[in-house]
Design a protein around this nucleic acid. Sequence first.
DNA 1: AAGATGAACTTGTATAGACAAGCATACATG
DNA 2: CATGTATGCTTGTCTATACAAGTTCATCTT
Lengths: 266, 266
Amino acid sequence: MRLIDKASPIPYYQQLADLLRHEISLHQHEPGIYRLPSENELAEQHGISRATVRHALDVLERDGWIYREKGKGSFAPVRRVEQEATQLVSTTEDMQQRGWSLVTRVISLKRLPAPSHVAYALEIDHSAPVYELCRLRIVNNEPLSVQITYLPQKLCPDLEENDLSLSLFRLLETRYGLRLWTARSVLRARLVTAHEAHLLQVPETIPVLYVERITYAATGTPVEYLEAVWRGDRYDMRVTLRRTPSVRTGYPPTTPQMNKENEQGG
Amino acid sequence: MRLIDKASPIPYYQQLADLLRHEISLHQHEPGIYRLPSENELAEQHGISRATVRHALDVLERDGWIYREKGKGSFAPVRRVEQEATQLVSTTEDMQQRGWSLVTRVISLKRLPAPSHVAYALEIDHSAPVYELCRLRIVNNEPLSVQITYLPQKLCPDLEENDLSLSLFRLLETRYGLRLWTARSVLRARLVTAHEAHLLQVPETIPVLYVERITYAATGTPVEYLEAVWRGDRYDMRVTLRRTPSVRTGYPPTTPQMNKENEQGG
DNA sequence: AAGATGAACTTGTATAGACAAGCATACATG
DNA sequence: CATGTATGCTTGTCTATACAAGTTCATCTT
């Protein structure tokens, strides 16, 4: 039974990758690690060359579906449900998952030309009009986070007509049809500023978790630029990550000039 | 001028990838997009086949160093394209990607019974024997991070025989055959402790990014429990998150996997 | 029983060749 | 002048082959 359609415009290696993904998902309910057929077996089964099989396995390996061991074979690992890579969640959903109460107070909403670093992040023209929304998130009756959100006015006109103490994600999605898809974050520990300390009602010496985030729509368009701080003594962030082989291939430079011993540490 | 050493045990494609990474980093200060030589040119220049060149370019593409356009060429963007979703990387790999130098000093290595929170994290018996490894990571000639790693002795016997100033990930993978697969992290901002401040040579008032991490093997076994602090004024963490952890290669909705509609607010 | 050997597997690396398809440019044709 | 075409570039896909190197297991030797 050959399942690869040689008349299809879809490349063989993609067809095979699709087949194997399906196969793996079937075996994921069983205990133990599923071992894939060997490369030669797959090549013979589907009437394609081993190089093409390897191309398909490369794709699966990059996406974390399989790992390979020299001399042994290719395997689909056990997936714990909880160990799926962390998904993008909003503050609202985050608090819900933790079972914490959330109240939001809008501090300010302004229309202004984008500051340069905001324009850069949102990939819009310098000084293009944006909204600047500043909100205080009060969790379990304690101010926990100060969040400044920048949104291009072009993407969400008449933002001030809405109740901004509710979920911004939901608003963007339902009213403006923006499907939020990915987000890039930078996390840093720093001291609270005077303004933040005033809003959070804490002394000016406490450390906070500073988060910068650019959120992208499914189209790739940057939708939101967020600068947030969280009380370090009340909030921690949880992240689940997966290891893929591509990062492991980074070898130290072998050029004589730059033999700077950077093959170090764990 | 051929820079690929055909006598080296390092594969050609990795040598070429290293060379090109170096080349790209040189061009990243210039304005505009750097266009790489064509695959045929690279093959001829280095006396290797086009397939091997493509292998090297595949690695660079998956690491976000280059993108390729059919009919046009391969390009290194001005701003490095970040990976689709953040991957679990070791400190070594992290520093390599940032182009920073790394030196590691081993502070201590002890055998001891697992403290309860460590035993819980590693899913081993209370007081089961573990290694406690404390290391100082010195980046660009500045102490940047203090890291305490707990490893079950059962998983990595005779750990003290190894050079622990090198990559722990690599050691676990190569010597002990532990294939690291996923990790769960908790991030928090807090003040540095006296002991940490002494090691990092900083005043006791600075904030640090505190990271707890449990690293799992492909089999689901917890391998490593890490407690680390990073100087807040020198280090930031980057995380990219997605709504759907699945694939970029358009893959048909044949999988019986449903999307949870968890769309909630900002 | 213990250890060495070898055969038969596995994945990893590399070559040479071929054709397809997207892109840019020069050129000929209307 | 506008436009279609030919050509030569680029990357994308695929085949067939070869050898290297790691694993497993049966078998032979001691």
